[in-house]
């Protein structure tokens, strides 16, 4: 360390020493919470710790993880994307129509992901070029995209003509489903991109202080646009996996998908103020919520109460974030 020590050393140092314990507790809080929940469920809930249950749990979380990982980047860049449910529903409709016309699974996948990219580009255009608040613009685009879904499918339930379409999500590799493996790959890619690459640093800088980032030579508009493109194409891919799993897709599918992904990011502790967060936190958040729901189901807790408790958990996570930021500022 070549920096000079000064009198403010004594000012700051004791506080830091005292906080080592507490800071690692808060820093890894969601990991401790997820680990504790895992242990508790193993001990108390028969049927939780077993290959079939855990395999299913991961398989069910694959779609959420695939979207939540890039969505973490969007939030860190200081933006919001609520249009992902619409993309998740509409992209596989596009994919399946292409599959019906061409009988090619590869083309279907390409068309579906491309549809997602187009949606992401539209969001990026609204946010970066038109400078519309991202919450409002993605809310609006969400209606547009969902409506297009009805047009594309002509309100019908679409099913793939090729039975092999099922293999996309359901192939077993080393005991886990292919969709689980894809989630692992997507999470790993975004984790590394965010923590170790220049692009990742630029995402943090853009969200922490956009003006200063621009002054530092970062093309903040491109950074923001890229997060929308990545998130929307990931949502499209997740939607295709879901269609493969159920071998069908329809425009009236469950619209709450984005909330699951957002909940994972936020419970993981990524700040909605931008500039801070990590992908591993999101993974921990997603697994925490998944284990919680799984535990409730195994213990036959009324689904109504499950929702109430999940809501309270999200509030606790966001409240904790606001509280720790207020403390840091004082």
């Amino acid at each position: 360390m070549t920096l000079t020590e000064t009198e403010n050393t004594t000012l700051v140092a004791p506080a830091v020493h005292r906080n080592v314990w507490r800071s690692s507790l808060t820093r890894y809080g969601i990991v401790w919470a997820a680990a504790a929940l895992f242990v508790i469920l193993c001990l108390t809930t028969p049927g939780f710790f077993g290959v079939p249950n855990l395999r299913n749990l991961l398989d069910q979380q694959a779609a959420v993880l695939i979207v939540a990982a890039p969505l973490t980047l969007t939030l860190i860049a200081g933006q919001f994307d609520v249009s992902l449910s619409a993309v998740y529903i509409t992209a596989p409709l596009v994919g399946l129509q292409v599959e019906a016309a061409t009988h090619s699974i590869a083309l279907a996948l390409a068309a579906g992901v491309l549809a997602g990219l187009v949606c992401g580009a539209f969001n990026a255009f609204l946010v970066v070029t038109c400078r519309i608040n991202s919450f409002i613009s993605t809310l609006a685009s969400s209606y547009v995209v969902a409506g297009i879904g009805y047009v594309v499918s002509d309100r019908a339930i679409l099913t793939p003509s090729d039975e092999n379409f099922r293999d996309l999500a359901a192939t077993r590799i080393l005991g886990l489903t292919s969709s689980t493996w894809m989630a692992v790959i997507v999470v790993a890619v975004f984790w590394i991109a965010l923590s170790s690459t220049r692009y990742g640093r630029y995402v943090y800088a853009t969200g922490a202080n956009g003006d200063a980032a621009r002054l530092s030579g970062i093309r903040t508009g491109w950074i923001v646009a890229s997060t929308f493109l990545l998130t929307a194409s990931a949502a499209a891919f997740a939607g295709l996996l879901n269609a493969s799993k159920s071998m069908s897709a329809q425009a009236s599918d469950d619209f709450s998908f984005v909330f699951g992904a957002l909940a994972a990011v936020v419970v993981g502790g990524t700040s909605i103020a931008g500039g801070a967060g990590t992908v591993w936190r999101t993974v921990a958040g997603a697994l925490f919520i998944a284990m919680m729901n799984n535990g409730f189901n195994l213990n036959q807790v009324d689904p109504i109460f499950q929702r109430i408790i999940l809501g309270l958990v999200i509030l606790a996570a966001v409240g904790f974030d606001a509280f720790s930021r207020a403390r840091r500022r004082s």
Partner: peptide, 29 residues
């Protein structure tokens, strides 16, 4: 505060940010 610093970032991150292209290989810092 508004155009210069990233107040929540470390000193090193603040100083090195514009120079990362020089300090990265294949995109990795």
């Amino acid at each position: 505060k508004t155009e210069g610093l990233f107040v929540g970032f470390s000193l090193v991150s603040n100083v090195s940010l514009p120079h990362l292209p020089r300090f990265s290989r294949a995109g990795f810092v």
